[in-house]
Simulated assay, not measured.
Amino acid sequence: MRKRFIVLGILLTVFSFSEMNAQKLSYKTMGALGKGVSGFTFSDADAAALAKESVAELDANNPVAGPEDGYSIRLNRLFGKHISSEGVNLNYKVYVVKDINAFACADGSVRVFAGLMNIMDDNELLAVIGHEIGHVVNHDTRDAIKAAYKKEALLDAASSQSGNIEILTGSQLGKIGSAMIDSKHSRKQESQADTFSYDFMKKNGYDVNAVESAFRILQNLSEGAESSFMTKMMSSHPDSGKRADDAKKRATKEGLYKAYVQQKIDNTAPVKAKTATKTTAKKATAKKK
């Protein structure tokens, strides 16, 4: 992936990618929604259908780690047991890029970037994934796509009057994709996802102090080389320092707080043992006298 994805999904939103071209949503998918979105009604199924189409485009245009890749093996080890959470079916993949990001979509797709896996240990990564699951469970991702559709559909007077999604032009569909990419979750939604992450860690027996640690890492990033960009992009979201403080405060109140020590980070695939080659002993041939 050559185009830069800078800010982590936990700070921004589903589809909050920088400098990415809008993903086109096919007429086939939109038409299949039919009366489901007529009159601007928008069910979970409608949102999932649109999200699935967009994620398929993202997967097709980004380097996805294969099943034998160390990143996939690690994520599967951590996340495989959580493919069904709160009644939501999840699927996950790793984009093999250096950028630091993660995002979730209304269809249950979770995508984690290798750059994030390089700087967070297992517990910290689970805290981030828990946050992303929270956005799906809380319907934040559905609302983001719904807002994008309504905004672009209303640009066309005829569409607005008829409420018929099939008459949207390809250009409008492209704008819907762009709007989804640029959308942001509200502060309240981010806060609720933070709470979900903490509860997710506690419920599953993980170290809740990793939630604070993950936010401290993001806080340090925001104070580094990308600080000006991060400040701009985080203007509508709680700052990482405060979110880390909130996680620490809750852990302290519950008697669970302990300064978190980051564990070893290993994204390498296990070395396969070489199969010993069988040597066939040559039979001695008796020489004739």
Rank of each mutant, 00 (worst) to 15 (best):
N220T: 03
L154M: 13
V97Q: 02
T13I: 02
E19C: 00
Y198W: 12
T141D: 14
F15G: 10
A281H: 10
T268Q: 12
L8K: 03
N123A: 11
H185C: 08
E53D: 01
V14P: 13
S54G: 00
N76I: 05
N76K: 14
D107T: 08
L116Y: 03
M117N: 11
L126P: 02
A251N: 15
G115M: 09
V128Q: 00
V137Y: 09
K98T: 12
L221T: 07
V97A: 05
E68G: 08
A210N: 12
A45N: 05
N62E: 06
A273Y: 02
S178D: 06
S228G: 04
K28P: 07
M20Y: 04
L50Q: 00
S227R: 14
K52D: 05
M230F: 15
K98C: 00
Q161A: 15
K283P: 03
A214I: 07
S227Y: 05
D239V: 11
S197D: 07
Y149S: 05
K35P: 02
G36V: 01
D140M: 07
M20S: 01
T275K: 15
A179C: 01
A158N: 10
A32H: 01
A148Y: 04
R2Y: 12
Y92L: 00
A281G: 08
G205M: 13
A114M: 12
T268D: 09
D194A: 03
G66R: 09
S26D: 14
Q161E: 15
K288G: 05
Q219L: 04
S235T: 06
M120T: 15
H131G: 03
G36S: 10
